[in-house]
């Protein structure tokens, strides 16, 4: 059952269509990623879900409720981590959690959250004295302290070190296992690939793709990359005739061929025909990075 519904959402600022007809739903127990370049309209989209902005057109529902008209009811169900927001600089971590827990009827036990997010040592530290990563982790804890049915996390792990990032991912997976619908706005492809059940790619206010991570990767023009130490016995012209081969480049003593599964098969036959052993051979799948760059058309390399 969808907890969050967005239908044909539109938002215009100063004549510019910041969000231009975006539609998607997020089910309970699903992590839904929103990817896109800076200024693509991701944050405006989630702000409409949070009820902080009023859509110019289209429909937004959280558990069937309009986030603007029924703002107070929606705030009881929806946990939010804003991209940029601070707390009172002299408020301690413990006080902030106590305060925010008091806003909700059935708050979560914040001691558990604090432990999961590695903030036990900072309970008496004031917000202004926390490191960027610690502030971020506190904001995640505050988003979850109300035991929400759905949660919007805008740039979940920005500013976190690799270990905290992995611990945060594990926490979000547990939240999903509890049946919470999670909307995740992110710039990190590794994060999206690891966490998200489905991903919406937004570019210039429009939804350019909506699929599972594997589905998005499968759509790329170049799902396979073959790399090996350059060998004069394998000519460039011949490599280019491989079925599905798109590009052949030789640089720094390494030849890279991009193509499809068919290219890989044909390449292996080619090696056998010439009785050549390709040294340092690597065949890699495309990543979400490649898919993303294809979809957003910002690949300037």
């Amino acid at each position: 059952m969808p907890v969050i519904e967005v239908q044909d959402l539109r938002k215009v600022y100063g004549g510019r269509r910041v969000v231009d007809g975006v539609s998607f739903t997020v089910d309970e127990g699903e992590i839904f990623g929103i990817l896109g370049p800076n200024g693509a309209g991701k944050t405006t989209t989630v702000e409409c879900i949070e009820g902080l902005r009023t859509p110019d057109a289209g429909l937004v529902r959280v558990a069937g409720l309009d986030p603007v008209a029924r703002h107070e009811d929606v705030t009881r169900l929806l946990g939010v981590q804003l991209q940029q927001s601070e707390l009172q600089p002299k408020l301690t971590v413990g006080e902030a959690l106590d305060l925010y827990a008091s806003f909700y009827e059935r708050p979560a036990d914040w001691r558990v959250l604090v432990e999961r997010l590695g903030l036990e040592g900072q309970l008496r530290t004031r917000f202004g004295k926390l490191s960027g990563g610690q502030q971020q982790r506190l904001c995640i804890a505050l988003a979850l302290v109300g035991n929400p049915r759905a949660v919007v996390l805008d740039e979940l792990t920005t500013g976190l070190d690799p270990r905290s990032r992995r611990e945060t991912w594990a926490l979000i997976e547990d939240i999903r296992a509890g049946g919470v619908a999670v909307v995740l706005v992110t710039h990190f492809m590794e994060e999206a690939q690891r966490l998200c059940d489905r991903i919406a790619v937004i570019d210039n206010g429009r939804l350019t793709a909506l699929d599972t991570p594997a589905g998005l990767i499968g759509r790329t023009a170049t799902p396979r990359t073959i790399a090996f130490a350059a060998d004069t016995r394998l000519e460039r012209a011949e490599l280019l005739t491989l079925p599905g081969a798109l590009t052949v480049t030789t640089e720094g003593g390494q030849t890279v061929v991009t193509g499809t599964d068919a290219t890989v098969d044909a390449f292996v036959s080619l090696l056998a025909r010439h009785a050549v052993t390709a040294r340092g051979l690597r065949i890699t799948d495309a990543t979400l990075d490649d898919a993303y760059l294809d979809l957003t058309g910002t690949d300037q390399s």
Partner: peptide, 17 residues
């Protein structure tokens, strides 16, 4: 300062106005 730092904005996403 509360407005500038987003303290008010953060609070407006909770059941407390």
């Amino acid at each position: 300062g509360y407005r500038e730092r987003g303290v008010l904005r953060r609070m407006s996403t909770t059941p407390v106005r």
